[in-house]
Each structure stands twice: as C-alpha cells, then as structure tokens.
Write a protein that binds this DNA or RNA. Sequence first.
DNA 1: CATATGACGACAA
DNA 2: ATTGTCGCCATAT
Length: 120
Amino acid sequence: MKSAIAKRNHRIWATICDIPAGSVASYGQIAEIAGFPRGARQVAYALRKLPDRQSVPWYRVITSSGRIAFDIGTPAFERQSKRLSQEGVVILNGRVDMAIYRWQPDLDELLWKPGVAWDH
DNA sequence: CATATGACGACAA
DNA sequence: ATTGTCGCCATAT
C-alpha cells in the first residue's frame, strides 16, 4: 500500500491540477483546499518531489504575495515566468497581481474534494 | 530524541 | 518596498 506521505502528496498534486489555466494559487491556498491547513510548506515539499512535471501545472503555484518563489534570474524562475505568460498571466517585476489572477474555486469545486474542512 | 531545512505565511519595524 | 522574526509542520540527519 502507498505510504501516508505518498497519499498526501498525491492529494496536493491533484488540487494543483484543479487550478484553471490563466489563474494562480498560493501555496497556502492549495494546502488548505487539499485539506492541510497551514501546510504551505508541505505543498512546497510536494512540488520538490514532483515525479512528473508534465502532468501537473506546478507553475500556477506562487507565494501568497503574488511572487514567484524562485529568485529572479534563475532558470527555474524563467521557466515558470514563461509558462504563466503563455497562459496570459501578466507578470511585472516577478510578481502577479493576485487580486486579478488568484484562483477562486466555487462551492461545487470544493464539495467534490474529500477532506475539505467545511462545517456541517 | 535534538536540530536543521524548506519552491511558505503573517506581521512588525 | 525591504528586511527580519517567528510560527508552521513534514522530512532529513
């Protein structure tokens, strides 16, 4: 059977896959939706261990302040910046305007996610 | 068991 | 806007 960590990562990756093209989400936002409140660093960890970059839109995950997590000028930064631009996300000085591009999942999207902390 | 480490986040100067 | 500190929490050593 899969380890607990594998399941957790899988859930995080699945959540990231739900971010629509042209939108972005913060690490903390992904963590919360995936069912791990305050698990922003776990999202970062899951991304580091991403087995297949092709199947997951990792580049749509940025910091809560709208900054790309990599240092400006690094190859990683350029890759991410380019991918986002291709989707129409405007990046100015390495930052995205969260007020415009932040993913806002509607209730339906949240409901079919297992483990989301809604109150009955 | 004790520290160190992170593709983080919130907040105070 | 920048920088530093502290909180967070699974992994790594």
